[in-house]
């Protein structure tokens, strides 16, 4: 029943998909990581008004499915809204997807995919 150790053994990093301020702050905390060249992959994505949804989706899929070294994916709630379908259908335990508030968008517990499941559980 429990996930085998191989599923999470090598997961050390956090990944961020967020607006510039959130990403900057989190990078200041020291979560930023770039894999060694030649395939330098960043574990963060800055999203602004011009970023395409497909880019966000691609980054989300990359962090959740392809990369095996990420333990937690942080995503700004207003960005999660843009790819809501993806986020809601994602139910794996590893990596954990966490919706975080951003400076301009206060946190709304109604939209959180996990809290939605919690509420559905209690039949509300």
């Amino acid at each position: 029943m429990a996930a085998p150790p191989s599923a999470y053994k090598d997961r050390h990093f956090l990944a961020v998909i967020g607006d510039e301020d959130s990403v900057t702050g989190l990078l200041l905390a020291g979560i930023g990581h770039v894999t060694p060249p030649p395939d330098a992959q960043k574990n963060f994505l800055v999203v602004d008004a011009k970023t395409e949804n497909s880019t966000i989706e691609q980054a989300f899929d990359n962090f959740t499915q392809k990369r095996k070294d990420i333990a937690i994916v942080l995503i700004n709630q207003h960005i999660a809204e843009k790819i809501r379908g993806r986020v809601d259908t994602y139910t794996e335990a590893f990596p954990a997807v966490l919706e975080i508030p951003s400076k301009d968008h206060p946190y709304d517990p109604e939209k959180d995919s996990v809290l939605k499941r919690v509420r559905r559980l209690f039949g509300e």
Partner: peptide, 8 residues
């Protein structure tokens, strides 16, 4: 940002 200082 190069190497993660904060890890889990």
């Amino acid at each position: 940002a190069k190497q993660a200082r904060f890890r889990v």
